[in-house]
Amino acid sequence: MAEFLQAAIIGISLGAQYALLALGFTLIFGILGVVNFSHGGFYMLGGYVAYSCVAGLGLPYPLAVIVAVLATAALGWVFELFLLERLVDDHLATLMLTLGLYLVISTGLLTIFGPLSMEFAFPVTGALHLGSIYVPRENLIVLVVCLAAIAALWLVLFRTDLGRGLRALANDRAVAMAQGLRPKLLFPLAFAIATGLAGLTGALVTPILSLSPGVGDPVLATSFLTVILGGLGSLEGAALAAFVVGIVEAFTSVYFGGSIGALVLFVLVLLLLAFRPTGLMGRTVRGA
């Protein structure tokens, strides 16, 4: 029973991290129609910026996390405004642009920080013992921050005019523009919010997992699995699927060990595509 609860807690905390990544990814896809291959790059960048602030500038960790969010959001904003914006209607071109950016980010980090893992430890250690269950404090803190960020994103998207505008653009760009919404303003903003979320996740999670050039690839793969599972473009689906992915990973690694979890998830995704191609909560996907 303890083992079960333990796995559940790990799963939920993984799920919260994946949700932040997948929500950002979905936001970009839903609103701009862009598949963001640089998402893992912004995750890495968030980690490295936070690391530099702590190790280089001696900033306290929470402040470093905030700097990481702002830096990744700013880079995302600039990239969208000056490069992506020109070709935003060409799916293949935008995909390749984000791929190019990812290569530039990861090679840049490799050049500056070298190929080895950074010694970047979470400032809070120790664990809570609840009966026979053992929960590391760091995981708990990450979980709380992630859930808070998800809640904040939800409030912005569903309770503010900005959010209504963004969701309208995602629903039907032509109709939204006819109603006076301005993609020129909202596209870079949406991209910045999403990359900022990826940066936040990186700043929070890399001290616990690891920080080296190349941690972006698996992050991207997990985001992809999550958004396919949730249904491309569906925010609710992405959030739900992220927790499914996190929990499946946690339970398979506790009970089977190794990387069976990823295989199980992939098979799950293929079955889903065969029988319910819209994903858990997606819309019609047939055609181009």
Partner: peptide, 17 residues
């Protein structure tokens, strides 16, 4: 049979798998 985007995402995940 699905939108082209699915193809990109699935092939990416496939090589990881």
């Amino acid at each position: 049979r699905l939108r082209g985007t699915y193809f990109v995402l699935v092939t990416f995940v496939l090589s990881q798998i």
